[in-house]
Every structure is written in C-alpha cells, then in structure tokens.
Design a protein around this nucleic acid. Sequence first.
DNA 1: AATTCGCCCTGTCGGC
DNA 2: TGCCGACAGGGCGAAT
Length: 296
Amino acid sequence: MPELPEVETIRRALEKPLEGRRIVSAELRLPRMLLGFPAADLPKKLKGQRLRAVVRRGKYLILELDKDSLVIHLGMTGQLTYAAPDAPVDPRFRRTVTGMQKPYGAHPVDKHTHLLLRLDGGGKLMFRDPRTFGKILLVPGKSWIDHPRLGKLGPEPLTMKPAARAQDIPATSTRPVKALLLDQEFLAGVGNIYADEALFHAGIHPKRLVKSLKESEKTALLEAVKVVLRKGIKYQGTTFSDYRKPDGTSGTNFERLMVYGRGGKPCRTCGTVLHKTVVAQRGTVFCPLCQPLKKK
DNA sequence: AATTCGCCCTGTCGGC
DNA sequence: TGCCGACAGGGCGAAT
C-alpha cells in the first residue's frame, strides 16, 4: 500500500513533467472516487487550469492548480501514471514484476482507470485503483491544509524532532505501540509496512503497550521511523503487488525489508524464524528474539 | 475520551 | 479445472 515513501517517490517523479502544464481535458470514469464535489462538474472545473505544484502531506498527494487543489489518496492499490506526449500504449504496463519488464509507454485505459487528465503538449496523467479504496478531493484554493481529511494529520515524520515528539506520546495510553505508529494524527504517512520496519529497527515488540515504553525507547522508535522512511524513498518505494512509479516500473525496497512480508522466514539479523500475528487489525511481522516482549 | 470494531472493495491464492 | 472462502488493509463512522 502506498505510504509516505511511495507517495513521495511519485511526487518527485511527477514534479518536472507536470508543473506548468495546463489541463486540456479531464475524465472522471468512476464518479464515486470523487468526494465533496459534484462529479459531473469536475471536467469543466479542471479544464484550463495550470498545474502549479505537486506536493505531499502524509500519504496524500496534492496537485495545486491555479484556482483549486486536486487531492489524491491512493488507498491500498492506487496508481498514478504519467505518459509523456507521443508515448505508445504499452499493454504490459501493469504486468510488470520487480526486476523484469520495463514499461516504455502509457498505461492502457482499463476498467480500473478512474481519472484521466490530458495536458497541453500531449502528456497524460492517469489514476488507477482496482480496489477503489483511494479517494479524490477537489478543494478550493490552497485551503487543502484545513480540509477535514488533512487538517488533523500529525507532523511530517521526516521533519519532526524525535526527542521532542517523544514527549507528546501519552504516558497512560493502553494501545499497542504499533497502533500509535499507524495513527495518522500522531505521525502522517506511516502505514503497515514502515510501522513493522520501524519497530524492528528499534527492537520493540509491536504489542508493547505505549505506556510501557521508556523515554529512550520512544526516541529510538521515532528515529527508526525516519531511518526506514528515508530508506524507502532511497529505493523508490516498496513494490510487492500494485505500487508502481509513474513510469510503471517497480520500487526496489521490498527485497530490502527486514520483516514486512517475511513471516516464517529467518530474521536477517539473528536467523530466528520471524513470527506473524495481528496487531491493531493489521497483519504484523516481527522477530521474537530481536523484539522481545519482555526486557531481559 | 480512548479504543476497538465493522465496513467498503476486488484481485489473488490455497484447498478440495 | 473450477469453484469458493479467506485474505490483503487505510480510513471513516459506529459501537463499546
């Protein structure tokens, strides 16, 4: 699922080709993907506006236009692809596997392609999402910052100060620590993959209760969040099913993960078989030796 | 107030 | 081979 590193990778890839381009036409092929604005009015609203900036907040990608902001959440299986002018349609586009075929053209429009923006010069931006957990919002001006869906987001993990943020962790909370990491009001952009990775990196069991954490553990965990997110960005995101970069190729972080998706396999640090369980209604993988529930 | 639960949705996979 | 249930899970609203 696209988390902060995946969305940031997409943002960086789209920045150059999109900024300054004018929307020639917009096609919303699945109206229910759009929230808070009449779907029928979207094409007229977007047509003619220039794309001024591509920004990210947590897991949200925001296309700032002349008058409005188009806010996109990729949900679990959302893909944003950009096709350069004159790029041929590539039928293999979405069949890519890590390390295999390299798409060279445009994603074919299929039944999962929900938004299609044609740009001046001939470029195309497409939003595809098989499971339709994604969302599109049209927000007037740059007030997306205050939109109900984005206004309550916690700090950006990459710019927060771990020691300071650690002070904000409730001392009496009975939640498992993994639930805290997944809480977008605590930190914006951490999802299931990087929560597990951060907990491993910090040597903390995902079921540890928040109130049981020592100050040093809190700070170490928040440092670990930054480390694993930076690593995710460095390798252009984690592809294990649907996530793709805008050119259709895969990120290469999956093969570098320490725990996520590796239940039953040996820990890369100590060789112990990694356990898989459920925490906060999410599949969770951890090393029982490197992340003990009780301190020795 | 804090926390958990149920639901949305569809491609993929294991079992028989 | 084909059918079918289980599974994946972010975020929201309801329930506890």
